[in-house]
Computed example of a mutant assay.
Amino acid sequence: MKAFHCNRCGQRVFFENVLCERCEALLGYVPELREISAFEAADEGQWRSLHPDAEGKLYQQCHNYAVENVCNWMLPADDTETLCRSCRLTHTIPNLAEPNNRLYWYRLETAKRRLLYTLDALGLAIQSRHVDPDNGLAFDFLENVDPAAPIMTGHDNGRITLNVAEADDAHREKVRTDMCEPYRTLLGHFRHESGHYYFQKLIAGTHWLKPFRERFGDEQADYGEALDAYYRDGAPADWDARCISAYATMHPWEDWAETWAHYLLIVDVLDTSTAYGLALLPPAPNEPRLTDQTPVEEASFDNLMKRWYPLTDVLNSLNRSLGMPDGYPFTLAPPVVDKLRFVHRVIAQASART
């Protein structure tokens, strides 16, 4: 995530902000610029961008920004749509008559927008359900209403379902603890499920399928049987020698989705560190130094990993100083690094085509 500033006063602002705390300018994200812009009121319902790259263009707020307060994206003033590109991907929202669901909806949309920002930065195309009714990307945010049929977070031909309960921090942390997971976040869910979507778009039926099977296994293995076996027997004791997580051992599809999600995590965090000019200067001369500021989209995989390892040292050391668990509770065995390299190659080729 890049660093953003208010175009009116220069104040540091963030991706989720709707108002500059210094000058009180309206803020909004402009997808075509990939920038947070400050705005000034123009005609009724229209806002003039103060971002220099917008050249005074007029915009309107997404309906979910102006009315529902769960978004901060903008559309061109002459756009006939009322929802922004992100909100149009949401097919089902939570029942807002239920307490806390508006907060949970806001958190879900916030995590989704961060995913879309990263996918866009990587040059990965997204087709909505309007373009591809059968396999286009869509999101359903559903809640448990029948104890006998709980909502399961998952993916089905481009339709991603998120259990609204995952937006409840206490619930999510309890599940993480019960499942003995080192990491469980809303953004992590979105990254993981997007991996299933891009497997269909980028791997299935392509020349990538053979090298995929060499690394992840045969995805034709029965998924239902694999799921039952995993929850019955758990992961092999040596799972961390070849997979990024225990759950990744369940089936090749899940191994791919977990690895994909981890790659997005790496490039997102590195992009943020680059935007902030972070430099690691350890005392020992032979230790790695985080001094290369190459943008993520221009970096080779070897360069990404060279920058990643020292950054994780910083993340974990800072968290320990705060009395918090490690910010990066993972180890990357050589086979995992090879899988991450494969994801990098697939994305690089897909990006080159867009």
Rank of each mutant, 00 (worst) to 15 (best):
M1L: 13
H5M: 06
C9T: 04
G10N: 12
Q11W: 04
R12N: 12
F15G: 00
C20M: 05
A25Q: 09
L26T: 12
G28I: 08
R34N: 14
I36E: 08
A38F: 01
F39T: 11
A41L: 07
R48V: 13
H63E: 10
Y65A: 04
E68F: 11
M74H: 05
P76Y: 05
A77E: 10
A77H: 11
A77S: 15
E81W: 02
L83S: 05
S86V: 01
P94S: 01
L96A: 09
L96R: 11
Y104N: 05
E109F: 01
T118S: 08
L122V: 00
L122G: 10
Q127G: 03
Q127L: 08
Q127W: 05
A138T: 08
F141T: 07
L142N: 00
M152S: 15
H155L: 10
E166H: 14
D168F: 00
H171V: 12
T177S: 13
M179W: 14
E181T: 11
L186M: 09
G188F: 03
H189P: 02
R191E: 13
Y197T: 06
Y198D: 03
F199H: 15
I203Y: 02
G205Q: 07
G205Y: 12
K210R: 14
P211Q: 04
P211D: 02
G217E: 02
G224R: 11
G224W: 08
E225H: 09
Y230F: 15
G234E: 10
A235V: 04
P236N: 03
A237D: 15
D238F: 01
M250W: 03
P252V: 14
E258A: 07
T259F: 07
H262A: 04
L265A: 05
D271S: 15
D271M: 06
T274R: 15
A275W: 08
P283G: 15
P285W: 07
P288G: 03
R289P: 06
T291G: 04
T291M: 05
W308I: 00
L311N: 07
T312C: 01
L318G: 07
L322F: 09
L322A: 09
M324K: 13
F330A: 10
A333H: 02
A333W: 01
D338K: 13
D338F: 06
F342V: 04
V346T: 13
Q349T: 14
